[in-house]
């Protein structure tokens, strides 16, 4: 026993090192479990508050571009007002028709922290559970899809960004309708890769890439970017398509969080079918 204590005292530095290192590596490996607890993430009250204050200053420097974006979005929204449409006489609508139910609810939020220089990039928003935001909601800006809500605290939420190597988004080519998965390779914050498009598909440079709507997170047809380069390895049966993102992640200020009103219904139905 005495020898054991002597051993510990003699090598306490190395032993302590191994213990602490093991704890931190466990943190890395259990990453997802800890994300859910949101205690150690930037949506916690302390770090969220600091980012919020700093962002108030940084945002001032971007006011010009933000104003332009907002003006453009106003114009777009005005064009969608009922007054902008001609009433048609041969259009009938049942009051209780489920097709006319609102399917998606949009909530606007402000970006208070954002990164583009890591392999796992996250965005922090200034709204959280109290504003009706829940994990797994889609996030878009007026230029296209931004990411998916990962964690929420009462007043903040973190978003796993499109340029995060952990995120895969179901996307399709708008022209031909072929769908695949959109992934980031961790290098340039302006480009992502669209994989799993079969070689018999017709792909042209400049084609639009939009969300497929197969998951209940994003509605179909939200812009992601356009095709910049099409590559086909020898003997490969799938294209490797480089997509230029429509959203500039370096300059992101206001976003909208999409709530799907019947997403539980869709998920449960799909699960039931799978279990059969």
């Amino acid at each position: 026993m005495r020898n054991f204590i002597r051993f510990i005292v003699k090598y306490h530095f190395a032993i302590l090192f191994f213990i602490i290192e093991a704890v931190s590596l466990l943190l890395v490996l259990n990453y997802n479990a800890y994300q859910r607890s949101s205690f150690l993430s930037s949506s916690s009250a302390v770090s969220g508050g600091i980012f919020k204050r700093f962002n108030a200053g940084a945002e001032y420097l971007m006011l010009r571009e933000i104003n332009e974006d907002l003006a453009r979005e106003n114009a777009y929204l005005r064009s969608r007002m009922p007054e902008s449409f001609r009433a048609s006489r041969d259009y009938f609508n049942l009051v209780n028709d489920s097709a006319s139910m609102q399917e998606y609810i949009y909530r606007s939020a402000r970006v208070i922290n954002n990164s583009t220089n890591r392999r796992f990039n996250y965005i922090t928003l200034n709204k959280g559970r109290l504003n009706g935001i829940e994990p797994e909601m889609g996030v878009i800006s007026n230029k296209g899809a931004v990411g998916i809500v990962k964690n929420v605290s009462d007043n903040y939420s973190t978003v796993i960004s499109v340029i995060n190597t952990r995120l895969k988004i179901s996307a399709k080519l708008k022209e031909s309708g072929f769908f695949g998965s959109l992934e980031w390779d961790g290098t340039s914050y302006q480009h992502v890769y669209l994989l799993d498009i079969p070689r018999h598909a017709n792909v042209n440079v400049g084609d639009l890439v939009v969300t497929s709507g197969y998951s209940s997170i994003f509605p179909a047809g939200i812009l992601l970017g356009n095709v910049e380069d099409v590559a086909l390895d020898k003997g490969a049966s799938f294209y490797r398509i480089r997509v230029k993102l429509s959203v500039d992640f370096k300059n992101l200020a206001f976003v909208e969080v999409i709530g799907h009103t019947s997403s539980d219904e869709q998920i449960n139905l799909e699960k039931e079918t799978e279990d059969d």
Partner: peptide, 23 residues
């Protein structure tokens, strides 16, 4: 070691990478 762990952990909390900087 404890100071190294805590300074790394604080940076981790702010960049959503638990354990990476700490280790």
């Amino acid at each position: 070691l404890l100071l190294g762990f805590s300074s790394g952990m604080v940076v981790d909390v702010f960049s959503d990478t638990p354990g990476m900087h700490a280790s």
